[in-house]
Design a protein around this nucleic acid. Structure first.
Lengths: 222, 222
DNA sequence: TAGATTGTTAATCGATTAACAATC
DNA sequence: TAGATTGTTAATCGATTAACAATC
């Protein structure tokens, strides 16, 4: 009962994939153990932070030795649920939709797109990668029947809310929204928004500041 | 001199595009002013936070009235440098690269991809959207000559570091890295990493917790 | 005017970092 | 053993939220 009461800091959750990826690399190099000191240098993080993050997954290291890489990987995967495959539906087969369907990386997260949906008759019936594009009005019935838990939205902004509503009626529990628009979902539905605008805002502003300071520097020089 | 010393909280920077997008919506509806109370309800944020965020851009509101939408939009755009066009090079014309090249949304951020690069002879010379795919070994010379500031990496992981190195030799100042791998750049280069794994980790874990608690609930019921 | 809203200062909260005993 | 590393508690830091005077 208590376990799900412990709240995991979101920054920690967001760092776990980085550790996971890095550890997989170490494993291919044939290494068996790793210390936080070592990881910290490579990943540019402070050792105590890494230690705390890893502790959340339930793994324990050994003083003087460090952590077993194999155990760490299993611990992270189990903690995130990446040790079993989750099937997902994706709606919207435009550029981004196609790109995600073909993305090979999902495998390592245990995510598998099993069907795509669209309203455009020109794409319905086609195959993208391994999967079939179905008409959107089949979504509710199919997702209920197949007990699909995850829905991915890659439609234009204007359709995102109505697609989310369909997914919820189809008993989908988590929505990964790439439509860069705020959609509203009930409390018991997990919503994860993915958008490149925030990242670009950070890049734009930092760039502006560094270029400004460069120009200022030049002025000072002459 | 002082201006660039003030550090802007990154969470604030990341929220600005959301305000920007929302305000554009209000403008198309013909509204002229807006209060933080009102925005807060729509965007699910506390009014004082919105006020602080907006204050960073230098705009001032009027007590009892709120903010002028037009002035807010201009203030955010100017603050982020989105009021002028920045030209960018993109390297790697796979699924993701093509997808970003065709992405219409960059226009509103003042970002324009002016050339694409690849090493694959099969794609070199082709046109994606409006732009030409050039051989990678032309990058340094061209980006120096055209004074390109932004480089976008959409290559496989294995090439990301070497592409970044080329960009830096081509005097690019900011790198937007979609290759989901840690690349190393000198201090004076801005690096912004874009990766969907952190977001999916959050979704996976939350989903796991909610599904677990659902199963537990059922057990308790019977 | 009264009430709503801004702008700003203070209090709270949560995450990161520092410190250090325990340990192999 | 000595030194490196973990695990944990305390201190710090930064962002969010609360409180409230100023104001149109």
């Amino acid at each position: 009962m208590d376990r799900q009461m412990i709240s995991i800091p979101e920054p920690t959750l967001r760092r776990l994939p980085m550790y996971h990826h890095y550890l997989k690399n170490l494993r291919t190099k044939g290494l068996e153990t790793v210390s936080c000191t070592y990881m910290g240098i490579e990943l540019n993080l402070h050792p105590p932070q890494i230690r705390k993050d890893l502790a959340f997954t339930g793994v324990r290291g050994a003083p003087k030795i460090g952590y077993k890489i194999e155990a760490l990987l299993r611990s992270i995967e189990e903690f995130l649920g990446w040790n079993h495959v989750d099937e997902a539906f994706i709606v919207g087969v435009g550029n981004l939709g196609k790109c995600l369907i073909k993305y090979e990386g999902f495998k390592q997260y245990g995510l598998k797109c099993v069907a795509a949906f669209d309203i455009d008759p020109k794409v319905i019936g086609k195959k993208i990668g391994d999967i079939q594009v179905l008409p959107l009005d089949k979504l509710i019935e199919l997702s209920t029947r197949m007990k699909i838990k995850i829905g991915i939205i890659t439609t234009p902004r204007t359709s995102a809310q109505s697609v989310a509503d369909l997914m919820i009626r189809g008993e989908i529990k988590g929505i990964w929204n790439f439509a860069s628009i705020n959609i509203k979902v009930p409390n018991n539905i997990i919503l994860q928004n993915e958008d490149i605008a925030p990242g670009f805002a950070v890049l734009s502003k930092k760039l502006q500041l560094i270029i400004q300071s460069g120009e200022l520097g030049q002025e000072v020089q002459k």
